[in-house]
Design a protein around this nucleic acid. Structure first.
Lengths: 140, 140
DNA sequence: CTAAACTCTCCAGTTTCCTGGAGGGTCAAG
DNA sequence: CTTGACCCTCCAGGAAACTGGAGAGTTTAG
């Protein structure tokens, strides 16, 4: 009988697509935890895979590992009231919303940019090199 | 009569809120250009302020300075067809759209997270430290 | 005309998020 | 019992986007 599922660092790496070195780095930042065997090896529970995936996602969206740590670590410290974590989470949600709005606006800018340019394309004046950059209006 | 408006680097810095050093750094990357006076000073036209603002915005949204350069520099090279810039732009737009979608999904994740947690709050069991992290489902 | 404010170059350091190597122990198969 | 695949620590470096300092020239306000 196996002692629950004890994953070694390489297993976690394979399952998450994150390099072994990166996982060790996460641990050094305190955002990923492991138990040590008598041999000194790190051992992980399957939930670690989830955690790493969470980290990946958050990170892909512009959260720093410190941000991630803010959310994940509070629990481990054990002495911080839930309300704190919750407001932290709320902050991140608000941040995301703001970013989404900015992105949407910027995307519209770029589309404008593209379309205005598409118009000038049909009339390619010989010596003209698409006077694109100088025309950037984008006074958002 | 002033020779059009020739801004010095400090002027541009003030008008954009970007540090002088950063502006010089941008130039070293080739994404911001200046003329040099006999004194060796950099001189900028007012459109430079626009450019810098464009850089700031793009950057705030996760574009690297290299990305910005891709868009801005092509024009200077003068030998690249407009179509190239246009497809570059289209790529960025697509990228933005993807990112917006991911962000929206992740925000929903976090909101779920927050709400599920809010539910468990009203019943604060004495020794219980919000078993939040282990519960992360987020199998997006 | 002088002193403060500004500019220049060059170079070193900072932060974030890693990657890779050296040097050495551990484990599983044959 | 050896070989190869893992694992460990520590240390170095690297890309991105700057910041700050030294040492020196320039401009401008009073």
């Amino acid at each position: 009988m196996t002692v629950a599922t004890r994953l070694k660092i390489g297993d976690v790496a394979k399952q998450t697509g994150i390099a072994v070195g990166a996982l060790r780095y996460y641990e050094s930042l305190g955002i990923l935890h492991s138990e040590r065997g008598d041999n000194g090896y790190r051992y992980y529970s399957p939930t670690a895979v989830h955690q790493v995936q969470f980290i990946k996602k958050a990170q892909a969206l512009g959260f720093s590992l410190e941000d991630v740590g803010d959310v994940l670590n509070v629990h481990q410290r054990g002495d911080v009231p839930c309300g704190f974590v919750q407001s932290l989470l709320q902050d991140k949600i608000q941040q995301l919303e703001d970013q989404i709005q900015q992105m949407t606006a910027f995307k519209a800018d770029l589309e404008d940019y593209r379309d205005r340019w598409a118009e000038s394309q049909p009339h390619p004046q010989p010596g003209d090199i698409c006077p694109l950059i100088e025309t950037v209006p984008l006074t958002v």
